[in-house]
Write a protein that binds this DNA or RNA. Structure first.
Length: 892
DNA sequence: TAAGTCACG
DNA sequence: ACGTACGTGACTTAC
């Protein structure tokens, strides 16, 4: 079979230009350690990767312009005259673009007296004759004149990753001209950037019309008499010479005496070592990570040879006996097809004992006593990747995992909360371990995702994962030790994973009937409001589209524009609230939004994820995601069920206990973040206020409004003071505070100054934590959870400020997260010890929610606050408030 | 897939 | 002078 020859020709200057300006806004973010700008190199690289993937070329050449003067200047002295000088930020990058190409193993070429276009034209023509399929990449539309049946011209769009592909058909569709006529058009129209004039007053439209009629410039002048008398005709006659000259300038030469031939442009792929060195020089950290695993010739092949494994089946599984005494530990990996481990098909497993590896597709085999023992025997340490996921998966097989020792995912997250990939392969790369592929590389992605049918390929991938776990245990545990984070791992996160798994497996019961009733009620109201809005607007439109709504409000109804977004008018609540009273439509829109949100997210959304068999939702808590240490909840998110507005709060009526006669019980920490702040800042005044059990917001109000008695605090003052307290926790700015409570920036600034005068310890803490973050590069929580803040030394004000606010906020938010995690572990232990039927079901950052038989409620009322209180001992007391009722709504 | 919006702590 | 609150997830439209 004859191999397909595919030629890729790139207009180097033009693409570099496009790349540079596409990333111009981020110019200062692309600077390497030597102060070199790298945005054009970066963009060029991105373009290369994209085009390689879509074209898969066998031959590549990148053409550059050799200098400013070419043969065209001899024909027309002003050709490309008056051009602005190339910015130095770009010109300094050209040598590095060439270096990039060397690392990619790609030929590049330039020729005195000619432009890159001419080199490309010549090679494209040769390609044509030698039966190549050719793609030309450029930012310059002029090159579309080279399009043929076998040559496609890909013109970069706004960015550099997207291209518009010009085939002769596409040229025709776009201009109504053939590719060859593009030259005639340029001759008539001229080119501003190349600085040649064309025929006076003839633009693209006129040119196209003329060329449709007369085919070419020659045709026009041969038949010039046919044209009616007009200004245009006069210009044509007047500028005849210019037209021919311009056509000549526009015509790309296809017969240039090149020193390269197509055989010189064979492309054999990039050179790994050079690429690594180059990316290091450019500080392209992410690309480095990507290539470190992926660029071996055939990594899968290589690794298969490395690991010898036994494929387990029903027939041979009983031949293997793992004597518990002899087995020191097992590294184990359970594969599932999909994110949701409550339902995802269990599609395989692999494990390692001693020097031996085993793998199988048949997860039922795990139930055989000899395998089950490995996971359930308390004397065998189990090392895993994502213990919670594995625990839930095994639980579905009736296998109860005990004693997790090392959880690669969890430890990795603790070491750096910002590196939170869920992919074992990706994560391994971040720890410089590359003997394993990413799932995407083996399973594919999107609709094409699938487990390999080839046993060797699949099992070696699974075994590689197991080996990764095994290999990374010691070095990562060592790092934990260095960071003094062992306690955080062993006492908090590791046991918490099991507590969370149990909560998720339990799930919370949903009254679907109640939801459906509410749904039909809301449905009616929605359609009523919709009708009213259409009437007020005078037309129907898509209310869910901020874009269409913006047109109605700000163009049709001419309401004042309060705020703009990147893409148009903002129609966010804060904006609509300012427009209230100007038109009745506003109130209706707000109401519509409110109810539509409840309907789609909380009624329809919740019903969608309720399991039919137990009428429950089983959320998943992501334990390794947030950079502060909080949990998050997905599928469904049970941490954002409405409460603030009465309409939405009703949703909570649909969360009920699993048995009749049971109750929902809830306890929450009161102002835990401010208490944490009082503790870590050692601020005497704030500590005193908490120690005395004062209303902290009222106390703050008294101080910033300079009142003598708590009785003088109005509710508005308290509200504002509360906002100040929140602002402090977030890393305050006068603008943000002003925005939030609707006062002037000046006033906000005054508030903050007063605040810091009253709580000097807080001020000092804020200053110190930023300095410490700058020195150490990270901040820590009470339990040594760590967040790195590389941006804290950024020269960009915005980026730096953000990092500074993060430095102030993370120890507070993160320590509060630590505390409730400890409480959860102790709480679960307590429920078991006391043999209560009560179940802990949900965590909402500062709140724990249980279900329990009514008779256990008095016990919970005593025990839960006790346990939560005792989770940690601070300089000041914690405060816990509890409530219960027959639904979550009633537990308030 | 990104952006806008809005639900929660 | 800069241009902002901290941490999340889900749904919808529009590219």
């Amino acid at each position: 079979m004859k191999e397909n020859k595919k030629l890729l020709l790139i207009d180097g200057n033009s693409v570099a230009f496009r790349a540079f300006f596409a990333l111009h806004q981020s110019l200062e973010r692309f600077v390497n350690h030597n102060g070199l700008h790298t945005n054009a190199v970066y963009g060029f690289k991105t373009m290369l990767d994209n085009i390689i993937e879509s074209v898969n070329p066998t031959h590549v050449l990148v053409a550059f312009d050799a200098g400013r003067k070419t043969f065209r200047n001899e024909k027309y002295a002003d050709y490309k005259g008056g051009r602005a000088k190339t910015p130095t930020e770009l010109s300094e990058q050209f040598p590095y673009v060439k270096k990039l190409l060397e690392a990619y193993g790609m030929k590049y070429y330039e020729l005195q007296n000619y432009e890159a276009d001419d080199i490309i034209g010549t090679l494209a023509k040769q390609g044509e004759e030698q039966d190549f399929e050719t793609t030309i990449v450029t930012g310059d539309r002029d090159l579309t004149q080279l399009a043929t049946e076998k040559t496609t011209v890909a013109v970069t769009q706004k960015g550099v990753t997207e291209v518009e592909r010009y085939t002769p058909k596409h040229v025709e569709a776009k201009y109504g001209l053939s590719p060859a006529q593009i030259i005639d058009m340029k001759g008539l129209v001229g080119d501003n950037s190349d600085n040649y004039p064309g025929v006076a007053k003839v633009g693209e439209k006129t040119a196209i019309k003329l060329l449709k009629q007369f085919k070419s410039i020659e045709g026009i002048y041969e038949n010039i008499d046919e044209l009616k008398k007009s200004k245009m005709k006069e210009h044509l006659i007047e500028d005849k010479e210019i037209a021919f000259m311009c056509k000549d300038l526009a015509r790309i030469r296809c017969d240039v005496p090149l020193e390269v031939e197509l055989t010189d442009t064979v492309w054999n792929g990039s050179e790994h070592q050079k690429l690594v060195e180059f990316f290091q020089e450019m500080d392209f950290k992410r690309f480095l990570e990507k290539i470190s695993a992926a660029t071996q010739d055939d990594p899968a092949q290589k690794i298969i040879e490395d690991i010898k494994f036994t494929a387990l089946t029903k027939d041979n599984v009983n031949q293997f006996n793992f004597d518990a005494e002899a087995v020191e530990g097992v590294s184990f990996y359970l594969e599932m097809m999909g994110d949701n481990y409550h339902t995802a098909p269990l599609v395989g497993f692999a494990f390692n004992v001693g020097t031996k590896y085993f793998a199988s597709r048949d997860t039922e085999l795990l139930k055989y006593p000899n395998l089950r023992k490995l996971l359930e025997n308390e004397n065998i340490d189990v090392d895993l990747f994502d213990g919670k996921r594995t625990f839930v998966g095994l639980n579905r097989l009736g296998i109860h995992l005990t004693d997790i020792r090392f959880d690669l995912l969890l430890v990795s997250y603790l070491l750096d909360t910002s590196d939170n990939s869920n992919d074992l392969g990706k994560l391994a790369q971040q720890h410089d371990y590359t003997e394993v592929l990413e799932d995407e590389q083996v399973y594919g992605k999107g609709a094409k995702i699938k487990i390999p049918e080839n046993d060797a390929e699949y099992y070696s991938h699974l075994c590689n994962k197991v080996r990764t776990i095994k290999k990374l245990r010691t070095p990562l545990m060592k790092k934990l030790e260095t960071n003094k984070q062992e306690e955080l791992y062993i006492k908090i996160e590791r046991p918490l994973a099991i507590v969370l798994a149990e909560m998720e497996i339990d799930g919370i019961t949903v009254d679907t009937q109640r939801l459906e009733e509410m749904g039909s009620e809301f449905k009616e109201r929605i359609s009523e409001i919709k009708q009213t809005i259409y009437q007020e607007a005078g037309e129907k439109f898509n209310l869910n589209s901020p874009k269409q709504l913006g047109v109605i409000l700000f163009e049709k109804m001419k309401l004042p524009v309060i705020k703009k977004t990147k893409t148009g008018y903002s129609t966010a609540v804060s904006v609509l609230e300012k427009l209230r009273g100007m038109a009745p439509i506003i109130d209706n829109i707000l109401k519509y939004r409110q109810i539509a949100k409840i309907q789609s997210t909380y009624i329809e959304g919740l019903l969608k994820v309720t399991f039919e068999k137990d009428s429950k939702v089983h959320t998943r808590y992501t334990q390794t995601l947030t950079s502060t240490g909080r949990l998050s909840s997905v599928d469904p998110n049970l941490q954002n069920i409405p409460i603030r507005l009465a309409e939405g709060k009703k949703i909570r009526q649909a969360f009920i206990p699993q048995k009749t006669g049971w109750q929902i019980f809830s306890s929450d920490y009161s102002q835990i973040e401010l208490r944490v702040l009082a503790h870590i800042s050692h601020d005497a005044n704030m500590q005193k206020a908490f120690a005395e059990g004062q209303d902290i917001h009222a106390n703050t109000a008294m101080n910033i409004f300079e009142l003598d008695s708590p009785a003088d605090v109005t509710s508005n003052m308290r509200r504002q003071a509360k906002a100040v307290n929140f602002g402090i926790v977030y890393g305050i700015s006068d603008y943000g505070l002003a925005q939030n409570i609707g006062i002037t920036r000046k006033q906000a600034k005054l508030f903050i100054e007063k605040y810091f005068k009253i709580f000097p310890g807080v001020k000092e803490y804020m200053e110190k934590i930023v300095i410490s973050a700058r020195e150490k590069g990270y901040v820590e929580t009470l339990f040594k959870r760590r967040r790195y803040l590389p941006d804290i030394s950024s020269r960009n004000y915005n980026i730096r400020s953000f990092a500074e606010r993060t430095a102030m906020n993370t120890p507070i938010q993160g320590s509060a997260a630590d505390i409730i995690k400890v409480a959860m572990i102790n709480m679960q232990k307590m429920l078991k010890e006391k043999k209560l039927e009560a179940r802990m079901l949900l965590q909402v950052h500062d709140e724990l929610i249980f279900e329990a038989p009514s008779k256990e409620i008095p016990i919970l009322e005593e025990v839960v606050p006790q346990v939560m209180d005792a989770a940690v001992s601070l300089d000041i007391p914690l405060k816990v408030e509890s409530s219960y009722g027959k639904t979550w709504f009633d537990a308030k």
